[in-house]
Simulated assay, not measured.
Amino acid sequence: MIDSAKFPITTRWPAQDPSVIQLYSYPTPNGVKVSVALEEMNLPYEPHLVTLSDADVKSAEFLSLNPNNKIPAIIDPNGPDGPIGLFESGAILLYLAEKSGKFIGTTASDKALITQWLMFQMGGLGPMLGQMGFFFKFAGADIEDPRPRDRYRDEAIRLLKVVDGQLNGRDWIAGDYSIADMAIAPWINALEFYGTKDVVGYHDLKNVPAYVERFYNRPAVQKAKTIPDPNR
């Protein structure tokens, strides 16, 4: 069970079923990673919509679970040593994969390769595409100096080519479908939201478009892509 004194976030977002994993999220690429994992792994969970507004992510209750004020975060009442709270989407994916025994490979070598590509997304693909989005779609688009925009566009192009090359002869990024794909595909899909597919030559890539389509054709992904529902 979840003690509200230990997890004050539950006073703002109360658990209807405190015996299952509590997900605090919003369906951005980072948020979708975790909802996809929970659906694919068939782990019982309860989603809570945490908007990106300061009123939510900078509230005392949310900061009590994630001092970095970013979604997603989880509480697992059935952690290895009792209830555990976690933030950072990559860390959550690793935790859930190890908890379920799914989508992290069957050998130590498998796990190392999957983790490698997960870290590639966390340290490179996600941050670079996110910054590109800022300079093409959001406030950065008003900056007259083209250098920041060009810097992130060029790095996005480079990273997409890395993914495209890795997918030669493969359906998935690290062998079998894994948490690495759950991390990478939602971020590539964000190019649609940012309106930058043409900017990065998306349709000229040999393998990436089919990879993203393959990912989003999975039933669990179709369900998870709007969890928590931002329109409720």
Rank of each mutant, 00 (worst) to 15 (best):
L129S: 11
I84H: 11
L86M: 10
A108S: 15
K111Y: 04
W117N: 05
A112M: 12
D110Y: 01
Q121G: 14
A108W: 06
G85K: 15
K137M: 02
E88I: 07
S89M: 10
P83Q: 08
G124I: 07
L93M: 12
D76H: 09
G85Q: 10
I74E: 06
M132W: 01
F134M: 14
A112L: 14
G126R: 04
I92N: 03
L129R: 03
T115A: 08
I114W: 05
K102W: 07
M119E: 04
F120C: 04
A91K: 11
K102S: 11
L94M: 15
P80Q: 13
T115V: 12
M128F: 05
Y95C: 11
M122R: 00
K111H: 03
P127D: 05
L125G: 01
F136N: 09
M122K: 13
L129I: 15
A108V: 13
G79R: 08
A73N: 07
K99R: 15
M132Q: 14
S89R: 03
A139M: 13
P83K: 14
I114S: 02
Q131W: 05
I74K: 11
A108P: 08
I75Y: 07
P77Y: 06
D81E: 15
I74T: 11
F135P: 05
A91V: 12
G105A: 07
Q121D: 14
M128Q: 13
G124D: 14
G85H: 13
P77H: 12
D81K: 08
L125S: 05
I84P: 00
G140Q: 02
G130D: 08
W117A: 00
I104W: 03
G140C: 01
K111M: 09
F138E: 09
G90A: 08
K137Y: 01
Q116G: 12
F134K: 07
Q116I: 10
G101T: 06
Y95P: 13
K137S: 08
F135V: 06
K111T: 07
K137N: 01
F134I: 12
D76V: 02
G123H: 01
I74M: 12
S109G: 07
A97L: 02
G130E: 06
M132P: 01
P77W: 08
L94E: 14
I84S: 02
L129G: 04
K99D: 01
F138T: 09
G133L: 04
L118M: 09
I74R: 13
G90S: 06
K137I: 03
E98I: 03
I75R: 06
L113I: 14
